[in-house]
Amino acid sequence: MNILQALFFPPDQPGGVSSMVPYIQERFNKMGWQMELFSIPKRVRSKGQDAVRFDTFDIRRYEGNPIIDKYIQTYRDYLWWTRMRITKSYDLIHAHHPIAALAMKELYPEMPLIMTIHSSYERELILNGKIREGGLEHQFLTSIYSELEAKADRILTVSESFRTYVSPYIKNPDAIKVIPNGFDEKRFRPISHENEVVQLITVCRLVPAKGLDILLHACAGLKAKGHAFVLHIIGDGPIRPELEMLAQRLNLYDDIIFYGYMLHPEEFMPFFDVFVLPSRAEAFGSVFAEAALCWLALVGTNVGGIAEQIDDGVNGLLVPPEDPDALCDALEKMISDPSFRYNLARAAWNKAKKVYSLQRVISQLKAVYLEVHPETEATP
């Protein structure tokens, strides 16, 4: 079978899709299936001129809104780039972004289309203070789900919680299949180590939705209680200056290291002790599974896909979002009791190897691909 994996970002960008899809391609190619990756470069801006229409709603009521106009122009650019670069047909297309899915179906309506919805752009914009819930932008972005349902031959998503989230915006949510992300365990090499001072680490884009302001306030509470630690923050984003100023105000600057963007943080993570990320929302939260495979103890918020990965008190600790005191208490448990921390980390590693293996994703995707485009299976 000849398959195109249609991404939005190039696969060298941070995030769950980029950390998984190239390894899926490698495994399928070894099985004898042809699989290619496609994405739009960042340099392509304002090239597309196509008239845009949608089948399930009238785009004209949204015209003139800056955020929506930018989204539509990005769609036009993706159409322009795809038309120029793709010169062959495929047995099926598997898209990992709504713009990629809609562009592929517009240009190649005869090719079967599978769409994996990995996250919610509108929810990220709301949490980052860019739009308001129920506003025009929110209405437009949630209308895209019904358009995807109408256009795609099969819709997948990464967690039960995210399927629940999109259910109000589509007609048949039961038809959405959940395939959690999977990870090639060969990328992760746990290292036996003893840190004199507990090392905390978080990896994310530095945006309000990730709740790092809550983390810094929790760390200030830890310091006030006399606990020694170092917090390592890997990632970059628009609120980095704001976070650095907050760290100074909370007298934490000497306890925190800001690294900026790192392409392969999994090479760095095994040297630390506790992974913590108090996200305000998370469709899946790939970085938790990655941290677990590095044998780190996990602390996260009881939201979305994080709550599906962490069984509280068994393989990590869950706290409510927006609660620095609860987060401080959870981190204090991790810092104060090395045996407790070790046991949680081992349980997290065991679950991640079993539930979030790349081979499980390959098997599930293979079954979906053969349902959409039946053919004789390739010989491994």
Rank of each mutant, 00 (worst) to 15 (best):
L298Q: 10
T142K: 10
D69P: 07
N302K: 14
Y259Q: 00
T142R: 14
M84P: 00
Q49F: 07
M111V: 15
L148S: 10
S89K: 12
S120C: 05
Y71E: 08
Y259T: 00
G226K: 13
F272W: 08
G16V: 05
Q364T: 00
P10G: 08
Q73P: 04
W80L: 02
E122F: 10
Y356I: 00
M20T: 13
P190Q: 12
Y369G: 09
P270W: 09
S363T: 12
S279I: 05
G226N: 13
I93P: 01
D329W: 04
A378H: 10
D55M: 09
I59C: 11
T82Y: 12
Y108A: 11
R123E: 15
P241Y: 11
M35F: 06
W349P: 00
F272Q: 10
C219Q: 01
R249G: 11
Q73E: 13
A345I: 09
S19L: 04
A6E: 05
H227F: 15
L296T: 09
D55E: 14
H138L: 00
S161I: 03
S286W: 03
T379C: 04
D312G: 11
L4V: 03
A228M: 03
G182K: 08
K70V: 04
S339W: 10
P238V: 12
R61F: 03
H138N: 14
C219A: 12
G304Y: 07
A297W: 07
A100H: 12
R163V: 08
L37P: 02
L252I: 07
E63I: 09
I233K: 02
K105Q: 03
G182D: 00
P374F: 13
L125C: 06
M262A: 10
P270N: 03
H96N: 02
I256Y: 02
A228I: 01
G313H: 05
D254A: 14
Q5G: 03
D273G: 05
E282R: 05
S143T: 00
Q359V: 04
H264E: 15
E124Q: 11
K225T: 09
I214Q: 13
E371V: 00
I40E: 07
K30G: 03
P238C: 02
G313F: 04
V158F: 03
R360T: 14
L298E: 07
Y108V: 05
D153Y: 02
T379H: 11
D12V: 13
E149P: 08
I310P: 04
E371H: 05
I257A: 04
K223W: 09
W33A: 12
P324D: 13
G285L: 06
G285M: 10
P66K: 12
G305L: 03
R280K: 15
F183A: 11
E242V: 06
F188Y: 15
L125A: 12
F340S: 01
R163M: 07
I117P: 00
I257K: 15
P11I: 04
V207H: 10
V372I: 15
A247S: 14
G235W: 01
L231W: 04
F183K: 10
L107A: 03
L215P: 10
L156V: 09
L263W: 05
S46Q: 14
T142N: 15
F38E: 04
K210N: 14
M31F: 09
H227P: 00
P320I: 06
G48N: 11
M262P: 02
M334G: 09
G260P: 07
T379K: 14
P278T: 11
M104R: 01
E290P: 03
